[in-house]
Design a protein around this nucleic acid. Structure first.
Lengths: 213, 213
DNA sequence: GTCTATACATCGATAGAC
DNA sequence: GTCTATCGATGTATAGAC
């Protein structure tokens, strides 16, 4: 089905390019099918044979595109994290200070709760042997750094602790939402309440900067 | 559930009792080995063959004591939840109001972060097909109800939301701790800060009861 | 180069002998 | 009650067809 293409009218590198493009397209098709299967059957239930069948191959052929099943998870992780980073940037969208923090978190929470399987892969450690590669983890680092920069803007006395507290609150909300009513929207009120709580804590004497910022 | 045994030396049921006792003891030995293996190799890496070897059996013999591997996870879950409930009660220990809430949560957090594998089984959903049985889940319900009763004592205007917020914060702290530095103790300061933040939010006008409580 | 057939080790689980 | 033997499924390695 996925035959190669011999028709290369031009230079000696034309075939190479075409081949690379085709390869990337097939990889993408595999990943798309992997997401679809994972959402339907569960992330851990993803099997190489089923995945291969979904793209019209047999299992061993997948190893032409990915070295192992874990590398498929890794590629999915990388894709998801790139999306998550974009979602956070979209939530910021020119805002500054506390509103930037609030809306970026709201966007991220909407993103994660919209797709439990994706959330499981990105933010829980549920696949037995899986650990993201440095390449795939890079957008996760960027995401964390972006949030940290928003926290730094606020001028709190202990930015590191403020960051820890923020991520704890947001991840706790995500847990809560996914455990109780995946897909529901009761969490939105809880979210605003939690963010208010957090900002109020920043204003408390214990964490205020010596001088007003 | 686990066979009863009264000390009656004579009658025709004496043999039955002895057998039940032996059976329960073997079950317990299997579970102890299961915890040990899970802590050493990972919860998902637990295999029936290895587990059987650890108690001097072959794999099929385990099915005399547990119907399936998932039932072993279920028994472990039940054990862990009973312990967790006891830990929370120990944290309360005659205290009342906010201090009872704070110390019970501190005890629970210490409990969970002390054993990542146990935390994974009890509070994350990481084993593919596993869902706790009603029997094993009962102590989890009791734990939740106990915390809810502590929240109710505080006299907040919206106890349900206060409960959601509390569990979100505590579970977020647990995430944070296990993701960043399992076994570390930096989280203790973060914990106290988070609890202060939560109590301050209860005192804010938005959530205060109409009259002082 | 791409894909397939085949094979292997390991998994949870079952059947039946002793 | 425990064993051996075995089943079907898994991830994956390799040899070879086209």
């Amino acid at each position: 089905m996925l035959g190669d293409q011999a028709g290369k009218p031009a230079g000696p590198d034309a075939g190479k390019d075409r081949r690379a493009v085709r390869r990337a397209a097939t990889r993408d098709e595999i990943l798309r099918a992997a997401w679809s299967l994972a959402r339907a059957e569960g992330l851990a239930a993803l099997s190489m044979r089923d995945l291969a069948a979904a793209v019209g191959m047999r299992a061993p052929s997948l190893y032409q595109y990915f070295d192992s099943k874990l590398e498929i998870y890794d590629a999915m992780f990388g894709q998801g994290m790139v999306e998550a980073l974009a979602v956070v940037e979209g939530g910021i969208d020119g805002r500054h200070g506390r509103e930037a923090l609030r809306e970026s978190a709201r966007a991220l929470l909407l993103f994660t709760t919209n797709d439990p399987v994706r959330n499981q892969l990105l933010f829980q450690r549920t696949i037995p042997g899986f650990e993201p590669s440095p390449d795939s983890y890079a957008p996760a680092v960027a995401l964390s750094a972006r949030v940290a920069s928003l926290i730094a803007e606020l001028g709190t006395s202990d930015a590191a602790q403020a960051m820890d507290l923020w991520t704890a609150v947001i991840s706790g909300l995500s847990n809560q939402q996914l455990a109780n009513e995946p897909g529901g929207d009761r969490w939105i009120r809880l979210f605003d309440r939690a963010v208010d709580m957090y900002f109020a804590a920043l204003d408390s004497p214990m964490s205020k900067k010596k001088k007003g910022s």
